[in-house]
Computed example of a mutant assay.
Amino acid sequence: MKRAAVFFADGFEEVEALTVVDYLRRADIHVDMISTIDNKICRGAHDIDVAMDKLMDETSDDYDAYIFPGGSDNAASMRQNKKLLDKVKKVFNEDKLVCAICASPTVLYEAGILVGKKITSYPGVFKNIEGGFDYLEEKVVVDGNLITSRGPALTVYFALEIIQALEGEEKRQQIENQILLAMM
């Protein structure tokens, strides 16, 4: 069974985080919700408290995917977490899947893994950061073991791309059918 880690801090974007967790679990991917703060309850950007499965110190590097939901406060907290940034860089360099949506591609930038990569993000989050990457205004961008996406309304496509990367096109199609994506 594939394993994914979804990282949280206070201020996470609830739709981006919980949709990904839900859809990956529907695809029979083991998902751990991991707090990057010293609390097993993280408060979302819209005041929804969510219980985490683990604290970051309780994890190892045995996941197939490392996923970062957005939320500006969430991303700001994670950009200050050297231990997390070191972990991201390490697993990315081991060719593990690293995924970020909305403001959280800035976490990956801070970890130093976006150089030469094609990415996207929430519009404007990189306005004060100069280059090193190829920014595309697309729903979801895949570049090797890196998946990035723009924001809450596109979370469905972000999650499906992660499912496809981990479990293949057939599993993605199965989940698309289950969630009635064709009706959109």
Score class of each variant (00 low, 15 high):
residue 36 T to S: 12
residue 38 D to Q: 15
residue 39 N to S: 15
residue 42 C to K: 06
residue 42 C to M: 12
residue 43 R to S: 02
residue 43 R to H: 08
residue 43 R to F: 00
residue 44 G to P: 06
residue 45 A to F: 00
residue 47 D to C: 03
residue 48 I to N: 12
residue 49 D to V: 02
residue 50 V to H: 10
residue 51 A to H: 11
residue 51 A to T: 08
residue 52 M to H: 07
residue 52 M to Y: 08
residue 53 D to F: 04
residue 54 K to G: 02
residue 54 K to A: 05
residue 55 L to V: 06
residue 56 M to H: 01
residue 57 D to I: 05
residue 57 D to G: 14
residue 57 D to W: 03
residue 58 E to L: 05
residue 61 D to I: 01
residue 61 D to Y: 05
residue 62 D to S: 12
residue 62 D to K: 13
residue 62 D to L: 02
residue 63 Y to E: 11
residue 64 D to E: 12
residue 65 A to F: 08
residue 66 Y to A: 00
residue 67 I to M: 08
residue 68 F to C: 11
residue 68 F to T: 02
residue 69 P to W: 13
residue 73 D to C: 10
residue 74 N to S: 11
residue 74 N to R: 13
residue 75 A to I: 13
residue 77 S to Y: 06
residue 77 S to L: 10
residue 77 S to W: 03
residue 79 R to G: 07
residue 80 Q to A: 15
residue 81 N to I: 09
residue 82 K to F: 02
residue 83 K to W: 00
residue 84 L to I: 11
residue 88 V to F: 12
residue 88 V to N: 00
residue 90 K to N: 00
residue 91 V to D: 04
residue 92 F to R: 05
residue 93 N to M: 06
residue 95 D to P: 01
residue 96 K to R: 15
residue 96 K to I: 05
residue 96 K to H: 12
residue 98 V to E: 10
residue 99 C to G: 08
residue 99 C to Q: 11
residue 100 A to C: 08
residue 100 A to S: 10
residue 101 I to A: 14
residue 101 I to H: 12
residue 102 C to N: 09
residue 102 C to L: 11
residue 103 A to I: 01
residue 104 S to F: 05
residue 104 S to A: 12
residue 105 P to E: 04
residue 105 P to Q: 09
residue 106 T to V: 08
residue 106 T to D: 03
residue 110 E to M: 05
residue 110 E to F: 04
residue 111 A to F: 01
residue 111 A to K: 00
residue 115 V to A: 12
residue 116 G to F: 06
residue 116 G to E: 07
residue 117 K to R: 14
residue 117 K to A: 01
residue 120 T to K: 05
residue 120 T to F: 14
residue 123 P to Q: 14
residue 124 G to V: 10
residue 125 V to K: 06
residue 126 F to A: 11
residue 126 F to P: 07
residue 127 K to C: 02
residue 130 E to G: 03
residue 131 G to Y: 12
residue 133 F to N: 09
residue 135 Y to G: 10
residue 136 L to P: 03
